[in-house]
Amino acid sequence: MKKHIALVPGDGIGPDIVAEAVKVLDSVGRKFGHTFTYETFLAGGCSIDAIGKPLAEETLAGCKASDSVLLGAVGGPKWDHMASELRPEKALLGLRSGMGLFCNLRPAILYGQLSGACPLKNEIIGEGLDIMVVRELTGGIYFGERGRDKDKAYDTMSYTVSEIERIVRKGYEIAQKRNKKMTSVDKANILNSSQLWREIVERLSPEYPDVVVNHLYVDNAAMQLVRNPRQFDVIVTENMFGDILSDEASQITGSIGMLPSASLRSDNFGMYEPIHGSAPDIAGQDIANPIATILSVAMMLRYSFAMEVEAKAIEEAVSKVLDAGYRTADIFTESMKKVGTKEMGDLVAQAL
């Protein structure tokens, strides 16, 4: 199979970690007889430096023309002083909306080899965690009407029935493939948009009779993630709530450098990226952990290319490397073998 992938390394450690993910992709290609080709595009702070704006038309067009997109990270203190419309993060919003990527999948997995990094007590975590947060990505307060008028500022949370239906269906479908349990998170006791959200979740429920669904207010969901995270399997929620809860879930695992994400549209075209930031203070120093980006490639193979065997091969290779005691600096503990970004990429590629 031949696939053309748009690479958007971005800022900070983005180029470092994307290079290792490509190394692993090429190893997959050799092992399973696939051909992956690549084209690199600017986005984020590096694009601001080059052309004065965070997202060029050529970047969006090139990503649209690809079979999938692999993103590193964008942003950094260098551009924090800029007006909101020119900040590097606008590239992410532009790519997501421009490509219609309405569904964000963020797994929060506590790897057994890294259980000591979890900030929660062992009796709370038990045998570990495997939570999938399904976040609506192109609606809500981030894309609603906004403005400032003298001493007032406003941002509007707005959703249509069709926007809610398509993300809720994704949640149900993913729950069917996991443990058939879905938690819908809203603020229906206060917000009209959440009341509509809850109505649609209930209306669609009979179409997925094998999925048990329950509802939580977002403040309670945030508390329950710390109190009893094992109660969750799939969490489906709107844009801002999903942004916050997925970050909380990732921190519970204690290994933000390990966690991937996928942003999908209805035909399963997607953009894949690690959940961590650009970490410009360690860029180019062969320190960054590439595993989250490598696992993002596994998600790409699974969700966009329907290559389940190949995706599992990457995940098993990562687990094998961790079992052998290799760690980058962010997950290193005594008695482990510390390696750099490039060596970790080499080890995973070799383990394939």
Rank of each mutant, 00 (worst) to 15 (best):
V211C: 05
W197F: 14
F332D: 08
A6D: 07
A43S: 14
E199W: 02
E165T: 14
D330I: 05
A91R: 07
D49M: 07
E315T: 04
I48E: 13
Y172W: 06
V201C: 12
L264D: 09
D219V: 01
V161M: 08
F232I: 04
D26K: 00
G76K: 10
K53M: 12
R230F: 05
K78T: 14
K187Q: 13
D323N: 15
S296K: 05
K2N: 14
V161L: 09
E20G: 00
G33W: 00
G128Q: 09
L191I: 10
D243Q: 06
G14T: 09
C103G: 08
Y208A: 00
M299S: 02
S184T: 14
G140E: 12
I190S: 12
R178D: 06
S250L: 06
T293W: 03
A221T: 09
D26Y: 00
I164Y: 02
D186F: 03
Y38E: 08
Y272W: 09
P209Q: 03
I174P: 03
W79A: 13
V18L: 10
D346E: 13
K31C: 02
Y172H: 07
H215P: 02
Q113F: 08
V236F: 04
L7W: 02
S261F: 05
G76C: 13
S27V: 02
M336D: 15
V134S: 09
I124C: 05
E273V: 09
D281H: 10
T333K: 14
I109W: 08
E85K: 13
V74G: 06
D210R: 04
K150M: 10
I48G: 12
S278D: 10
D49K: 15
H215Y: 13
N179R: 15
R178Q: 04
C103I: 11
E165S: 09
K187S: 11
G14E: 11
V201T: 09
G14C: 11
R203D: 14
D67M: 02
A153C: 06
T237G: 06
E39P: 06
T253Q: 02
D323A: 10
S335T: 15
V134P: 10
S246M: 01
E127Y: 00
G100W: 10
A221C: 15
P290C: 01
K342C: 06
P290L: 00
I51D: 11
E238D: 14
L93Y: 15
S278G: 12
P280C: 12
S319K: 06
K53V: 03
E273R: 07
G98N: 10
A221G: 08
P77T: 13
G116W: 12
Y159A: 01
A311E: 13
T156H: 12
N104Q: 07
M300E: 05
S319W: 01
V69T: 01
A351Y: 01
E248W: 04
N192D: 15
E315W: 06
A262T: 01
A317N: 01
D210T: 13
V348K: 00
L322Q: 01
E163N: 03
D346S: 00
V211E: 02
G242H: 08
R265H: 07
P260G: 07
Q231H: 03
A313L: 04
M271H: 07
P9L: 01
I51L: 09
V218R: 08
N214D: 15
D130Y: 08
E334R: 09
I174F: 11
S266M: 08
P290K: 00
S263T: 07
V321E: 01
S250W: 03
S296D: 09
I190M: 13
